[in-house]
């Protein structure tokens, strides 16, 4: 296995460099104290997953920011591209009835 390109999931292909033998890049996700989902907080380099978790703990939870850490190697993330913005997101723009505020409920019915 050679070390992968340290390209972010979002790095455009034309900006990618030939492979170098560097520690791979990991994306870090942290769950905070209040039962929320894991949230992307940043990235770091580490030789393997164990070290990535240890480094994430040192870099991203120095001030009690979290109770759980996920790391995933950046090259394993599949991402949508900006050119798909139209086909992907425009269809929902016209569907205003998907929002609760679309419906007028009389005041006397009470909270709903």
């Amino acid at each position: 296995m050679s070390s992968p390109n340290s390209a972010y999931p979002d790095t455009p292909e034309q900006a990618m460099k030939p492979k170098r033998h560097e520690w791979p890049l990991w994306e870090v996700f942290i769950r905070g104290q209040h039962g929320m989902s894991h949230r992307h907080v940043g990235s770091l380099h580490a030789p393997d997953a164990d070290m990535a978790v240890k480094n994430a703990r040192d870099v991203y939870t120095r001030r009690n920011e979290g109770v759980s850490i996920w790391v995933v190697e950046a090259r394993h993330i599949a991402a949508s591209s900006p050119s798909e913005k139209g086909p992907l997101y425009e269809p929902s723009e016209s569907k205003v009835y998907r929002h609760p505020t679309f419906f007028d409920i009389p005041e006397e019915v009470g909270a709903m």
């Binding site: 390109n5 340290s6 390209a7 972010y8 979002d10 790095t11 455009p12 034309q14 900006a15 990618m16 460099k17 170098r20 560097e22 520690w23 890049l25 940043g42 990235s43 770091l44 380099h45 040192d58 870099v59 120095r62």
Partner: peptide
């Protein structure tokens, strides 16, 4: 001083998204 290392790391990561590697 540990924070400064972290700040450097956040910024290197931001620069890397532009297509340059950490070691470079």
């Amino acid at each position: 001083v540990q924070d400064e290392a972290g700040h450097g790391l956040y910024l290197y990561c931001a620069a890397e998204t532009l297509g340059v590697t950490r070691d470079e």
